[in-house]
Design a protein around this nucleic acid. Structure first.
Length: 451
RNA sequence: GGAUCCGUAGCGAAAUUGGUUAUCGCGCCUCCCUGUCACGGAGGAGACUGCCGGUUCGAGCCCGGUCGGGUCCGCCA
């Protein structure tokens, strides 16, 4: 029953009468001759509405942007002097004979592909804004990233798991979780799949998950959102965190190759470059990085337990310029800065077999080796001032034996944003949740209503 | 939570040291146009300059408050 021709296939139907369906991208009205750029999921084509074709002209002369149309018409090669080599289907056009309007639209709030829309206007109109070419490219790329992540890990014998988003105790002992009422009890939204993927290492040895995680941190920056997609993996029988780093390097290589193979045109449009993943991504201990910063910039951050954002940007710049990599691993963060399950390096007391991956100025990954010994894990929980009793469910995995293991979590939106070169993570998140909005802006009034 | 910047038609911006009817581009409406592809041409509508108060003969502009937003920081992916 579907006799619709896709716009990308029209060039194979020159001289034939066909039916297409699509959305009006742009109308150019010359009076008795109207040009319409019609868009479907496969591309764009110019449709001619001529007064000579009365059936079509009477139906389509009133159409506006964003209307959905069904058009039957003749596919024609364009006259020599009207060929436009710059655009898709620039050498053909469809002369409308008849058809119908499938859906009308109200006046649009701003030009769909406008490049100078303020971020809050863009967010206020997301159901419309996302139709813009740039947003479409970004989220197709994001879809490919998830697919490549998944394809790669499956090829390495990882099993995809679905983990709960409602949890009893918060995952890492921090206070930054959202609470919700659970049949009269207090539950929390998961801030990571950490406990469940570790438990599942005891089952499958290698697992991964892709899912939303929730952070109730009241920050307001271009790199934070309160609900984001975490690409997580966890693997058993590792020697140390370096095995995880090696796996991530291969995984990133696969993602970048797939993007190169499928989206190089989009990256050109977005004016961004797909990074090269070196065989071995540069790695330095936190303290080495701090010494380097001190030596090169004169800024002394060697007594800090972590890097501040400016220094992360500096390190990325340094790595790109001097180490031939836009990626750089920073390892051995102090025990005090890492969660209770992080493995302390037996050869470097006080520092952990953990790492962050920095890319184009920000952390996109956090990972490391985990404590797999039951008694050590309990001791570590206690050292963090937490109550092991509260983690007894999770601790069963260790009580009943757990191989040495490690893993990582990668922020999908951060990776996407840095890859495609947008400044604000909200442009790499379909429907961002931040402190100011859940779809609509959260105002003082809606706050009062709840009380 | 802290610092800082900002709020002018649907969208993006302008408005000199405070001075008459608040300007421009895009979009919108009407009319003209058979070869445009960001079509073109003519005309038109659309703003209590976020809100409240103050200073002043006079406020979009100065001051205070309030509401809302951007950016950066703390924290993190």
């Amino acid at each position: 029953m579907e006799n619709r021709i896709l716009i990308k296939d029209l060039k194979n139907n020159i001289g034939q009468t066909v039916t297409i369906k699509g959305v009006v991208d742009l109308r150019r009205d010359h009076g008795k001759l109207i040009f319409i750029d019609l868009l479907d999921r496969t591309g764009k084509v110019q449709v001619i509405i001529s007064k000579k074709q009365e059936a079509a002209y009477s139906v389509f002369s009133e159409i506006k942007n964003e209307w959905s149309l069904q058009i039957t018409g003749l596919v024609k090669a364009r006259m020599e002097n009207t060929i436009n080599p710059e655009i898709m289907n620039g050498d053909i056009e469809l002369e409308a004979i008849e058809g119908c309007v499938l859906s009308k639209a109200e006046e649009i709030p701003f030009e769909k592909n406008s490049t100078d829309i303020n971020i809050d206007t863009y967010l206020n109109y997301l159901p419309f804004s996302l139709r813009g070419e740039k947003a479409k490219m970004i989220f197709k790329i994001q879809s490919q990233i998830v697919k490549s992540f998944s394809d790669f890990l499956r090829s390495e014998d990882f099993v995809e798991i679905q983990v709960p988003k409602i949890i009893g105790e918060d995952a890492e002992g921090g206070a930054n979780t959202f609470s919700l009422d659970y049949f009269g009890h207090t539950a929390h939204l998961a801030q990571s799949p950490q406990f469940y993927k570790q438990i599942m290492v005891g089952v499958f040895e290698r697992v991964f998950s892709v899912g939303n995680v929730y952070r109730a941190e009241p920050h307001s920056t271009t790199r934070h959102i309160n609900e984001y997609t975490s690409l997580d993996m966890e693997m058993g029988f590792v020697n140390n965190h370096e095995d995880v780093i090696e796996m991530e390097t291969k995984m990133l290589t696969k993602i970048m190759k797939d993007l190169q193979d499928n989206f190089s045109a989009e990256f050109l449009c977005l004016n961004s470059i797909i990074p090269v993943v070196p065989q071995k991504i540069p790695t330095m201990k936190l303290r080495e990085a701090q010494e380097l910063i001190k030596k090169e910039t004169g800024e002394d951050c060697t007594s800090e337990p972590d890097l501040d954002p400016a220094h992360e940007r500096w390190l990325c710049e340094y790595s790109a310029q001097n180490l031939g990599s836009e990626f750089i691993f920073i390892t051995h963060y102090p025990v005090s800065k890492r969660p209770m399950y992080t493995y302390e390096d037996e050869n470097d007391a006080g520092f952990t077999k953990s790492f962050d991956l920095l890319f184009r100025g920000i952390e996109i990954t956090s990972g490391g080796q985990r404590i797999n010994n039951y008694d050590q894990l309990i001791a570590s929980i206690e050292r963090k001032g937490l109550d092991p009793e509260k983690f007894n469910y999770y601790l069963q995995a260790f009580k009943y034996g757990m191989p040495p293991h490690g893993g990582l979590g990668m922020g999908l939106e951060r990776l996407t944003a840095k890859l495609v070169g947008v400044d604000n993570i909200r442009e790499a998140t379909l429907f961002p949740r931040d402190i100011h909005r859940i779809d609509n802006l959260l105002t003082q009034e809606t706050k009062k209503e709840k009380k």
